[in-house]
Amino acid sequence: MSEGDIIPPLSDTEQNEDFDDEVDEEELITAQKVLEIVETAWKNELCAPEILQHQTDMLELMLGQVAHMEENMKDLDKNDFRFIVHQMELERIRYVMASYLRCRLQKIETYTRHILNEEETREVAEKRLSPEEFKYAQEFAENVEQYFQQVALQYMPNMQRAEAEQRIVRPNLMSHVFIKANVDVPSVVVGVDDEEVDLTAGSQHIIPYQLVSDLIYKNQAQLI
């Protein structure tokens, strides 16, 4: 029941430098690896003040793997040792994925306008939201706007109506976060006065998010 642990070749994984040195299995990625990526994305998302790059590819692979596992488990007795253990693991994986998506939705609902404005300026390959999330954000923004209009704004004098700009909620990108370096990163700027520090692999730091956001993006460090 385990032969499905290897997932067929992927197209969009070049972001992950780890795979570059696997010559034979360049195109293959194990379910275990996918799970690791999803879990890292989950932890990063929980700790980051802004919304991060979406991981739709990885989530879909993981969902496929979960479905595959459930298919295999269908014929097992509910009290079978294997069934119970696999079931427990699937529950843990589902929790991670649900928590990840929920966290993103919360950010979308809080910073709707801000995120939508940012998305407009991004290239297709750099979009932070998945198409579904984008649709959700747009509808959410419209509904909120309409609601404000109906219950309050239409009764207000003209002066106060057109201040949509002021109602935009933005994340504080300079908020402090805990990070752990995955690899050695030389001369990272760590203060407003351009102070620089070399991060060694495995070291931990507290630092304003904006100064290290590119390290997170490049997977050189992760939020903890």
Binding site: V190, G191, I206, I207, P208, I224
Partner: peptide
């Protein structure tokens, strides 16, 4: 008045 600190060996 720092903005940055190293926290090696501190557990989660």
């Amino acid at each position: 008045e720092g903005t940055y600190a190293k926290l090696d060996n501190l557990t989660l």
